[in-house]
């Protein structure tokens, strides 16, 4: 396997603006298969912008640079094609869609992915089995499945629901945008177990977070610190621990 084949995500010199404001300024990041990367950094440093840009949010405009996912240029790909290829974004604020049940939504998502790979629709039996075991794994009550997508869910339930979608879609790269925010300790353990269970030699994860706590459960291979739209320092879990104690000031001043 060549080095290129091992790379899942390759971002080169990426600059992104939204609403006329430049947010990312020449960002470089490479994620290989099986790796877990954590992205930390102060508010407004561009963490969520990176997540949304990679997922293809129409409000984020790439002004220069390239994003390659599985060696394919993402810029010309629609949001759904990126997902079908194996990209998953866990939303910081999951969206409520009343009137569309979780079950119907997940089934449509799985079948869209299967169609992309020229496979037949999943059988009702297989789908329900998979759905039930995933919901059990995350401690989500069966009643959640028939409710509208995230409709009236608590903050913690919404985040668990994101992880459920991730596990059902079995992505090659998951970007989890502050999945730990608003979670109590028990929920965080459940979410961490869910993420850990999805890790494999072939799939990778990017975790955007403000706190080391989730990272202690997930143990990332790399911890990157964002500031002013680019990475100013890369380290390992120790860096996250240091940031927890000292904050970001010392790094920014050093820069």
């Amino acid at each position: 396997m060549s080095i290129e084949d091992k790379i899942i995500l390759k971002i080169r010199d990426l600059s992104v603006s939204t609403d006329g404001n430049q947010i990312l300024n020449g960002l470089n990041l490479t994620v290989k298969k099986g790796e877990t990367h954590a992205i930390m950094g102060p508010n407004g440093s561009g963490k969520s912008t990176l997540a949304k840009t990679v997922a293809g949010h129409p409000d984020y405009l790439i002004t220069s640079g390239k994003i390659k996912f599985l060696n394919k240029d993402l810029s010309s790909m629609s949001v759904n094609e990126r997902s079908n290829l194996g990209l998953f974004l866990g939303f910081q604020y999951p969206i409520e869609i009343p009137g569309l049940s979780n079950t119907a939504f997940l089934k449509a998502a799985i079948n869209a992915q299967r169609k992309f790979y020229d496979l037949e629709d999943i059988s009702a039996h297989d789908f329900l089995l998979q759905l039930k075991s995933t919901a059990d794994q995350l401690g989500l009550d069966q009643s959640f499945l028939s409710r509208g997508v995230n409709e009236g869910f608590s903050g913690g339930e919404k985040k668990r629901n994101e992880i459920m979608q991730m596990l059902m879609l079995n992505p090659k790269l998951s970007i989890l945008d502050e999945t730990d925010s608003g979670l109590d300790i028990d929920s965080m353990k459940v979410v961490a177990r869910g993420v850990n269970s999805s890790r494999s030699e072939d799939s990778s994860t990017i975790i955007i977070t403000h706190y080391e706590r989730l990272l202690n459960y997930l143990v990332p291979d790399y911890v990157h610190v964002f500031f002013d739209g680019k990475i100013i320092k890369t380290g390992n879990l120790e860096l996250a621990n240091e940031l927890e104690k000292k904050g970001y000031e010392w790094l920014i001043q050093k820069k």
Partner: peptide, 10 residues
């Protein structure tokens, strides 16, 4: 965007 991000066409 949320629905599309789960692979469902526009």
């Amino acid at each position: 965007f949320y629905i599309q991000s789960r692979g469902i066409p526009e």
